[in-house]
Simulated scan of single mutants.
Amino acid sequence: MMSSSKYERIVLKLSGEALAGGEGVGIKPDIIKNIAKQIKEARELDVEIAVIVGGGNIWRGKTGSDLGMERGNADYIGMLATVMNSLALQDSLEQLGVDTRVLTSIEMKQIAEPYIRRRAIRHLEKGRVVIFAAGIGNPYFSTDTTAALRAAEINADVILMGKNNVDGVYSADPKHDDTATKFESLSYIDMLQKNLQVMDATATSFCMDNSIPLVVFSITEEGNIKRAVLGEDIGTTITD
């Protein structure tokens, strides 16, 4: 595939909160349309794009567990929340003329295709944006881990992690610590040792073991997905 992008196949990881804007709850049509527009811009570079959206804008399994709900049930509700977000993003992309498929780890054939690795790769090769929903289909695993696993399965070149409240990885929370400094680059070992919590430890270790680079950047600045795909110096790059 000939492309002006740095990468040929990417996994774009979005938090559920990224679809909710500043409020952090629900799905905001103008926000999701902006993200869809950015994804379309990146797709026009002939890069193959898989997307994973969290569900934190609707439900967090850990929150339900902390309130006394059985953890497995709480996590399954969270997985269903990711399906809702995925369908909303699919609709916005298709309104822009972007051919899109939602593949879900929990079978619900009336609304999405079941996740099959070879099918996902075939969709990507045909130029479709693929959205992976319902995590990995098992409780106790985050959508960060899903991103790491799916990236390895489809042989993605990179995971692009779009954040809605920060433009990279910092030494501390820049909202509460004026001395926080931004890292231009990090190793996965550094990230674990410094306990920077960019993604959970399971996902971090998986990326490290499988040599999957990670780029953390701001999703709120228009055009940033395209810039990340082009390899421009935005955000923080993490490698093994």
Rank of each mutant, 00 (worst) to 15 (best):
Q95G: 05
K6T: 05
K126N: 15
P139G: 07
G127Y: 09
A18P: 00
D66E: 15
I136C: 13
T143E: 07
K28S: 11
E125I: 08
L196S: 09
D173A: 04
L149T: 13
K175E: 13
M161G: 00
P139D: 07
L19P: 03
T143F: 07
H176L: 13
V83K: 03
A228V: 05
V215R: 13
A112V: 11
E17S: 08
M2R: 15
E48R: 09
N210K: 13
A74F: 11
Y170P: 03
M69Q: 09
N195M: 06
N224T: 07
D200H: 03
D167S: 05
G231C: 11
E113N: 06
T82C: 07
S4L: 11
M208Q: 11
N34V: 01
S86K: 01
A228Y: 06
D178M: 03
L19H: 04
D173W: 02
A50P: 00
I131G: 04
I212Q: 04
K33E: 15
S171H: 03
C207N: 10
L93D: 02
E94C: 05
A147F: 06
D157V: 04
A88I: 02
A151P: 00
E8F: 09
E23Y: 11
K28P: 02
R101G: 01
S218I: 08
I77Q: 10
K40T: 02
K28W: 08
R128D: 09
